[in-house]
Simulated assay, not measured.
Amino acid sequence: MAVSTIPAADLRTFSEYLKGCKRILALLGAGISASSGLPTFRGVGGLWRSYDATDLATPEAFEANPDLVWQFYSYRRHMALKAQPNRAHYALAELARRNKDFVTLSQNVDGLSQRANHPLSQLRLLHGSLFTVKCTSFYCSYSRENEFADPIVPALAIPKNVPEPKPSTDDKTGEEASKSLYGTLGVSEGEELDISDDRVPLSPLSPDVLPHCPECKDGLLRPGVVWFGESLPSHTINLVDSWMKSGPIDLILVIGTSSRVYPAASYVDKARARGARVAVVNMDRNDVGSSGLNPGDWFFQGDAGAIVPEILKEVIGEI
Score class of each variant (00 low, 15 high):
W70E: 15
L239V: 07
R277S: 03
R274Q: 15
D250E: 10
R222D: 08
A91V: 07
R260W: 05
S4I: 06
F62E: 07
A57G: 02
S231F: 14
G174M: 00
G247E: 08
F102A: 07
A2G: 03
A34R: 04
Y182P: 00
A34T: 13
T257W: 13
E176R: 12
R285H: 09
K172A: 04
G37V: 00
C21F: 11
D198R: 06
P204E: 13
R115N: 08
V308I: 15
V226H: 09
S15K: 00
P201N: 10
S258F: 12
C21H: 08
T5F: 13
R260D: 08
I249Q: 00
S121F: 01
C135A: 02
S35D: 08
R222F: 12
S290Q: 13
L126A: 09
H235E: 15
N146L: 14
Q71T: 03
Y75R: 14
N161H: 09
S74T: 00
D287E: 15
V209H: 03
Q114T: 14
F41G: 03
D170V: 10
A177G: 07
S178G: 14
G302N: 13
S258K: 03
W243M: 02
I6K: 11
Q301M: 09
A304G: 10
P248T: 09
Q301T: 07
Q71Y: 00
A273R: 07
E16D: 11
P151D: 04
C135E: 10
R115Y: 09
E164S: 09
P154R: 07
K313C: 02
T58P: 05
G219N: 10
L193M: 07
P85F: 08
K22W: 03
D297M: 03
C216H: 02
V254A: 09
P295I: 05
P163Q: 05
D197I: 12
G45T: 05
P165Q: 01
F138C: 04
E16I: 05
G186D: 06
P159V: 10
E63L: 15
E176G: 15
V254W: 04
L193A: 12
V44M: 11
A88L: 02
L125N: 10
S290G: 02
H212V: 04
S4H: 01
S234I: 12
P211G: 12
C213G: 08
G45F: 01
S129R: 05
P248M: 02
D218Y: 14
L120A: 04
G29Y: 06
E147F: 11
P7Y: 14
P248G: 12
G46H: 05
V268L: 05
L105F: 12
L38C: 08
L293A: 15
L81Y: 11
G29Q: 01
D52Q: 14
H78F: 12
G190T: 10
K270R: 07
I158N: 04
N161R: 09
A155P: 03
P119C: 03
T236M: 11
R274Y: 04
L123M: 06
M244V: 06
V103K: 13
V254S: 14
S178C: 04
F131V: 05
P119L: 05
P309F: 14
R144P: 01
V288G: 13
Y182W: 09
